[in-house]
Design a protein around this nucleic acid. Structure first.
Length: 236
DNA sequence: TCATTAAATTGTT
DNA sequence: AACAATTTAATGA
């Protein structure tokens, strides 16, 4: 099995449109933005490809331009444990990049995706030079802390409908995933992988959420009608 | 642009 | 896990 990742073997410079879709770019001063842009790389990844693997040395801080990723680890028994999905606009790996350690989880595409990477050296240069960038990273870490607290709650919810609802709410987080908007492109099969339920059960749960007006199910994705209801509502 | 076909996704059992 | 129904994407005239 190859351990090379798309960003190692198929990277290319970002297009103007891709640069425009990167949320932290707008927070940089012109000189900083120029430096960051020259150190950014983009790659297309096929379905199921690994973006990074546990134990590999950190080379990039990653962002999702398009598609859908999942963050997971394999436990001692060989079972895969999925922590979260990462939709468009999401940037991740700053914890390991900060410490220049090795990746502590696997990042894998759930379908064909376009992934951006900022080299760790550039990441550290921005930390050393840009207030705007520091503010973004701090805000990012803070917001993700909230996500992990929520994730623990989700794990303790026995009711599948509730698990689906809260997991969806996490994916619609506008701070962490500004690229998502009102419509999330995710199939019921992909959502099933993320939440750890069967596709049938996810289908049933989505129907329940739609019946209460929290979402609308569309082909190949779904639209949020009431994010607050997804976060706090009762769908049993 | 339209019609046909293949592939993907959904809803149900 | 299997099935049919539906939607989208791809193809070529």
């Amino acid at each position: 099995m190859s351990t090379a990742t798309p960003l190692h073997q198929r990277r290319r410079p970002p297009t103007a449109a891709e640069l425009g879709a990167i949320p932290w770019m707008a927070l940089l001063a012109p000189a900083e933005r120029e430096r960051a842009a020259s150190d950014l790389r983009v790659a297309d990844a096929g379905p199921g490809e690994f973006i990074c693997r546990v134990g590999r040395p950190v080379t990039y801080w990653f962002g999702v331009v398009d598609g859908l990723l999942k963050m997971s680890t394999d436990n001692a028994q060989g079972r895969t444990m999925t922590f979260t999905g990462i939709p468009p606009g999401g940037w991740f790996g700053e914890g390991t990049a900060l410490k220049r350690e090795s990746y502590r989880y696997n990042i894998q595409t759930l379908r064909s995706s376009r992934v951006a990477g900022l080299h760790v050296d550039a990441f550290h240069w921005l930390l050393d030079h840009s207030i705007g960038f520091n503010r973004f990273v701090m805000n990012q870490l803070n917001e993700r802390l909230g996500q992990f607290i929520a994730a623990r709650e989700i794990d303790r919810l026995g009711e599948p409908n509730q698990r689906v609802a809260r997991s969806l709410a996490a994916l619609f987080n506008p701070v962490l995933y500004p690229g998502v908007g009102q419509v999330l492109r995710i199939t019921q099969q992909e959502l099933a992988y993320l939440v750890g339920l069967s596709r049938q059960r996810v289908n049933e749960a989505l129907s329940a959420l739609a019946a209460q007006g929290a979402i609308r199910v569309e082909y190949g994705g779904l639209r949020v009608l009431d994010l607050q209801a997804l976060r706090t509502g009762d769908f049993r």
